[in-house]
Design a binder for these strands. Structure first.
Lengths: 215, 215
DNA sequence: GTCTATATGAGGATAGAC
DNA sequence: GTCTATCCTCATATAGAC
């Protein structure tokens, strides 16, 4: 017996409140719990190493109950990634404020933010590895994601060059993947070894990069 | 009926030829075939996504036949990694010839070498992702591996600084992980998207790095 | 060293009741 | 929206014959 709907709302009344036709508050809560549990377990063991039953158990319902919300494991995996992208845009345009080389400062603060969230970072790193398989459900999603990230960074770099912050002759198309690579690569090392200081390393990278770009 | 031992060697004679007591040539061939098949399938689908039966089938024997050579899936996985390390030392000391900043040239040629071997690169990248799980059989192996790589690079960087190739004041301890990160990170992007040119990007990175380090 | 047969279990997904 | 029960497949590992 649910204990959250004191005055006794009907399903229809609940639906009107949440603004989602055909969905009850109870259902939304379960859905959210499933996503949360899936994030934690995918992060710890990868999607291939995690069973739907274990996720369902952590979310407080049965495995068929889970499949009512997400029709398959792949669908759940994609929902986890989509939900994560929605929550905080990571490298979204919104987060990459500032013009020109200020982008490096923005990225540095992102690295600092990430260093406080090992579980989320591991979720992405683990799933990135899995996604390298052609058949993996998130393969296309990750490929598109990285393409977008690189192109946003590249745009900023080009603007910096136009503004004279970066000397002519630097191959910015080739540089954009490098910047992304440093962030990802540091994460792997950090996740394997706590003693790695991503923030410090990324700062050193930025300093040297700026020197190299302006000299 | 085997067709490789024309004159009809006995097991004991075979053992003497291979120099491995208690091991026949036939067994060695199977073992090698298993390792080769495991590399290909782990690379394509990760170790969690690959069954022993599929490896055995690709190697031309039954699944229990495989388990005769490697007592468990974990043992096989570790053997694959050990075998790979043996074959070509990747970032081993032997490969990192040259003094001081010449290390960057050596690493660039390694990147070029890797760009010709997508399967091997993917094998490592996929398994690196899996290894982030604390419980993964190769977790410790990967952690130790990266620690070794960083320390070898750091040693070279320190020597370069001593020789005056690198100005004082640069935080080399923080830089070493960055160099490793660039190589790993580029590999992920390249594996997701053929159009990435790891060699070109790494070269740009090296050029900018040298400028930043010497200025 | 390799096989067949099998024990044993886990995983994803479905059917149908409530 | 959630459950129990179940199906079917696949996976690891073992037993024992050849």
């Amino acid at each position: 017996m649910p204990d959250r709907d004191g005055p006794g709302l009907t399903m229809d009344q609940e639906s009107r409140l949440t603004g989602q036709a055909g969905t009850s508050v109870r259902g939304d809560e379960s859905r959210a719990a499933i996503l949360q549990a899936a994030k934690a377990l995918f992060s710890a063991n990868g999607s291939r190493g995690t069973s739907l039953a274990s996720i369902a158990s952590a979310a407080g319902l049965s495995q068929p109950g889970l499949l009512h919300h997400f029709p398959s494991k792949s669908a759940l995996l994609l929902a986890v990634l989509a939900d994560r992208d929605r929550e905080d845009g990571e490298l979204s345009s919104a987060r990459l404020t500032g013009d020109g080389l200020d982008i490096l400062t923005a990225l540095a603060s992102l690295v600092e933010h990430n260093q406080g969230q090992p579980e989320i970072v591991r979720l992405f790193s683990v799933l990135l590895g899995e996604s390298l398989s052609d058949a993996h459900p998130a393969h296309g999603q990750f490929a598109a994601r990285y393409q977008g990230i690189r192109s946003r960074i590249l745009r900023k770099l080009r603007r910096a060059q136009t503004q004279g912050q970066v000397r002519e002759g630097v191959d910015l198309d080739a540089l954009a993947p490098v910047i992304v690579a440093v962030m990802d690569g540091l994460q792997y090392q950090w996740l394997l070894d706590d003693s790695i200081d991503m923030v410090r390393s990324f700062q050193v990278f930025c300093d040297l990069l700026v020197r190299g770009l302006t000299t």
